[in-house]
Computed example of a mutant assay.
Amino acid sequence: MTAEQFSSAALATLLEEANQHPWESVRSALAGADGQPHPRIAALASHLTATKREYWTLIAGVANTVSPPPDDAGLTRLMAWEVEAARALPESALGLLVTHSGTPLTVSELLRLNARHTAWHAGQIAALARRERSA
């Protein structure tokens, strides 16, 4: 299966699950960070916000049908925004090329990378959220 065979709806679902699913998502991992969370959690959330902005700025640069992400959106709002933006992408935009970290990728491949990257950091946040802090 090639990356172009993933529909906009399927890519939106991947992002929705990585971002918001009640289990194994950024939202569920952050919900588990009670009390005084590990300082690395804030750094990971900031990193996710920055990378999601970067991905969508690249996509907006090649796909006339999507705007760049809202400048004032934090991670929670940005995650909701990107699911709707992915869902609204026309299928013709999924094969457009962008360059991320010196690597040419299709929009579809970049959105799959986004979902994997999000899930990776959700796992890190969940692990840190369970870790006890010592004063």
Rank of each mutant, 00 (worst) to 15 (best):
A127N: 07
N19T: 08
L96T: 06
T118L: 13
A126R: 06
V98T: 00
L110M: 12
S28T: 05
L105Y: 15
A93N: 14
P37H: 10
Q124W: 03
A12S: 07
Q36W: 04
T65N: 10
A129K: 01
L89W: 12
P90N: 15
E17L: 08
I125H: 02
A43C: 01
A33H: 01
G102Y: 12
S28D: 10
V107R: 10
T51L: 06
S8H: 02
S7F: 05
T118A: 13
L97N: 06
L128A: 03
R27N: 04
R53H: 11
L14E: 02
H38Q: 10
T76L: 05
T103K: 15
R112T: 08
L75I: 03
H100K: 13
A43S: 13
R27T: 08
L78D: 04
E109L: 11
M79C: 14
N114P: 03
H100R: 14
T65M: 05
A45V: 11
E16K: 09
K52L: 08
S67W: 03
W120V: 10
A115T: 09
W23T: 12
A9Y: 09
L111G: 09
L110E: 05
A10I: 03
T13D: 05
W81P: 00
V26Q: 00
A93D: 15
I41R: 01
L15S: 01
E24W: 09
V62S: 06
V66E: 08
A29I: 02
T2I: 01
A42R: 05
T65F: 02
G74N: 12
W23L: 13
A93Y: 12
K52T: 08
P104M: 04
P70I: 08
Q20N: 12
W120E: 13
A50S: 11
A3D: 08
L44S: 06
I59P: 04
A9P: 04
Q124E: 15
A9T: 13
T103A: 12
R116Y: 10
A129H: 01
L97P: 00
A63C: 15
E84L: 11
E54S: 14
R87M: 07
E132A: 12
E82M: 09
R87V: 01
W23A: 11
A135F: 12
R130A: 09
M79T: 04
E16G: 06
T13P: 00
E132K: 11
T106G: 03
R112K: 15
P68A: 14
G95P: 04
I41L: 07
A86G: 12
A86L: 11
L75D: 02
L111E: 02
L15Y: 01
A135K: 09
E84D: 15
T99A: 15
M1L: 08
A73T: 00
G123S: 08
H121P: 06
S46T: 15
I41H: 03
P90K: 12
E82L: 05
L105V: 04
T65S: 14
D34V: 11
S28Y: 02
V66D: 08
A129I: 02
A80H: 01
F6K: 00
Q5C: 02
R53D: 07
Q124R: 02
L11M: 10
A80R: 00
T99F: 10
L94F: 13
T65P: 01
